[in-house]
Simulated assay, not measured.
Amino acid sequence: MGPEKILGAGYNKEKPTGGSAMKRVCLVVIGVLLAALLAGCTGDSLESYKKAVQKTEEITKGQVSGDFTLALDFDLTGLEEAQIKDLEYFKNIKGSFQATYDREAEKTICRNYLNLNGLGFDTDFYRNGREMFIKMPIAGKYIRLDEMMEGKETKPPGTAEFDFVSPETGDTLHQTWLALIRQEDVFTGKSMILTTPDGEVKTTRYGIKLTDAQIKALINDTFAALSGDEKLKSNFDRLIEQNFASQDEITFDRLSGEIKKSLASCRIENFQYDAYVDIDGYIVNEIISFEAKFTPDQAGGVTGIRYRLETKNWDINQEQEFKFPVLTKENTLDPEEMDRNLPFVFKDLFQKKS
């Protein structure tokens, strides 16, 4: 859980090109969402919160949902009308997801919605053991992610190999967050009754406010851990290289490098994190929000970000029901067909070069 941004995503003042700008703006979005998705007084509040975090991490099955908003401000100085129009798609982004999962059975169904300034896309993700596939927006057909990530020269990997980040890195990120929080950063609010899909739930609120310096330290430590995870880097780079864009355009190292470089001219403000813990000690509701301001080095660069993410957990450790679609030749896309079915705002970023 930690906000950050990529500075300088935009058009070159001397030689503006819409394609490269769209790639870099998409990197901004990927960076912010990646970091946010990787995240997450006095007396005994801190220790109680830590116990709740640990217990929540040990949930093996249940349901989770989330809603987010991401607003981006740009430096539009000197841009042409067509370039400004491209950036309009990224000014106001919102989305949601709802997932049913069983980690022990290695099953997940996650339904996602993304809205780019009024243009909406639905995407469904499925994992059933070693099978992973996704239903593409607009086309309404499926793409097999397991085949895309295997590579033609390798044997089908075991299901454990589908974890994008190694368990060791996950533990490190977890401990990095907990180690950052000081006693005075955590406070207990009033007991509250929340309305959840499980009904009325009595909770205790834990609120955390962090400074710009603390958040930057968290971001640096996070990407230091991620950069050492060869499994993550291999999965990320292979997925991009084989199926979307060429390796020299988007790599995990480039993404993390631009994020870290941007921190020098970034100021993160109004960071607030709230966790609501139920009577059984599980975090059933989390809300994270922040603002960030930047000094872009190029026209079209991002000057500000406003982000909010709210997640809910329910049906904790209860048996889940999964209904997976049957894939056929007619309803499944080849990687080559995927290029023709991408939403047009993503084509420049993700289409493979001939």
Rank of each mutant, 00 (worst) to 15 (best):
L218W: 06
K23H: 11
P335D: 02
N235F: 11
M338H: 04
G2A: 11
D86W: 01
E258V: 00
Q175S: 15
F290V: 00
A264Y: 03
K141G: 00
D297P: 04
G304A: 13
T195K: 12
G62L: 04
S20Y: 10
E57H: 11
P325R: 10
N115G: 06
D124M: 07
T176V: 06
T159I: 04
M338L: 15
L70H: 09
G62Y: 01
I283N: 08
A264M: 06
T42Q: 14
Q351Y: 09
K141R: 14
F344H: 08
V28S: 12
D229G: 03
M1N: 05
E81D: 11
E168K: 15
G257T: 00
D124L: 08
F97R: 11
I283C: 13
Q98S: 15
R267M: 04
E184G: 07
I30K: 14
Q272D: 04
G228L: 05
L38G: 05
Q242D: 09
K15M: 13
T196S: 10
N331S: 09
F244M: 03
P137E: 00
S20A: 12
V25N: 03
E291K: 14
C41N: 12
T154K: 15
A105L: 14
L27E: 07
A71T: 04
I193V: 14
K85P: 06
F252K: 08
L46M: 11
F346H: 07
Y11I: 01
K61M: 09
K50E: 13
T195E: 05
G62V: 01
E330C: 10
T196Q: 07
I259D: 00
D334A: 15
K312I: 02
C26T: 06
N243H: 05
P137W: 06
Y49T: 02
E249A: 12
G257F: 00
V277L: 07
T195A: 08
I84V: 13
S262K: 02
V277T: 06
R205P: 04
T100E: 06
F236G: 03
K353E: 10
N128G: 03
R267N: 08
K353G: 12
V345P: 09
P296A: 03
L87Q: 02
G62K: 07
T222W: 00
T204Q: 13
Y126D: 02
D334C: 09
V53T: 06
L119A: 11
I109T: 07
G228V: 00
A139C: 07
H174A: 14
M132G: 07
K260Y: 00
S227F: 04
P325S: 05
E80A: 14
G43Y: 10
F271G: 02
G18M: 14
R308C: 13
R24W: 09
K141W: 01
G120L: 04
G151N: 08
L116Y: 13
R340M: 13
N128K: 15
G129E: 01
L76M: 13
M148E: 01
D73K: 15
K107T: 02
S289P: 05
I288D: 03
S234P: 01
D212P: 03
L218D: 00
T203I: 11
K152P: 04
N341Q: 09
F294V: 03
E291H: 10
G207M: 07
T204A: 10
Q98D: 04
E336F: 14
E150K: 15
Y307V: 01
K61N: 06
M1F: 12
G8E: 02
L180E: 09
A213L: 02
D185V: 07
E47V: 08
P325Y: 02
T60A: 11
